[in-house]
Amino acid sequence: MDALLDRRLLVVTGKGGTGKSTLSAALALLASRRGKKVLVCEVVARERVSDFFGRPPSGPTIRQLLPNLYSVHVRPREAMHEYALMILRYETLYKLAFENAAARYFLAAAPSLAEIVMLGKVWWHATQEMERGKPRWDLVVLDAPATGHGLTFLSVPAVFLRLVKEGPLARDMRGMQSLLADPVRCAISIVTLPEEMPANEAIELDRALRSGGFPAGPLFLNGFFASRFSAQEVAQVTRGGPALAAAGEAADNHESRSELSAHYEGVLRKEIPRELLRVPFLFDRQFGAQSIEKVASAIAGSS
């Protein structure tokens, strides 16, 4: 875990609904506890991480959630604005060029320009340095879009550079590409669940990421059920008569889910050459800071 948290950029990706935001928050929390200054960048439609810690949404400005832990919601419009201003330097010029119907068109037509500026902003945070070469952030955690979109997202620099070879955007894209390919500074993690479809998608995603040359971070198997009853116990309690009907059903449910967990763990270990970390299923009435704590200690403990 130490080696993982020593990276500059951690990308957390996977199928929708597997718990990418949860793992992003937990990784950030672990790093912040180790004295690192951490920024979580969320690029999906709705930000979640600030809410986990009971804080109001951060929106497009960086806000502190906990000591050493910050978050920002990266949205295409504002990212475009900031990015364009960095290059153009004049608001009036920006307005003229971008706040018109043509810019709307341009945002849609230039291949994934929205993704480019968002990734550009994340890259900027990850490589931003203060005076005397000290980085502003020790670690940037990127909560990436779901599988299909996530892969598109990470491939954006390569796709863009095939079409555009000159200009400041192309120059920055090269920088991003080299960061995303550097195993010393960056790692791409996958989050999945012990279910058929998410497991299959994780396998495909892992292959695509490896063939794309992205440095491999761990695979998080979220929603894990550890076995709690022997087969004999389940059989006995299930046949134990009406007084044990509820207990029998609960034990049987639990074991059927733990069997699935063990089965998919086996499949994933066989198919995906990454470190696999189990994250237990949480029975939390309110999903909040305590839940993130549990996830953080699970991944810190299992490595």
């Binding site: 003229l96 341009f106 555009v164 070879k165 000159e166 200009g167 192309a170």
Partner: peptide, 18 residues
């Protein structure tokens, strides 16, 4: 002017392709 501004971001090849 607008064309030039856009070209600063993407290079002129892209605009030509467009």
């Amino acid at each position: 002017m607008v064309l030039r501004t856009l070209a600063r971001f993407t290079g002129t090849d892209f605009l030509r392709d467009l």
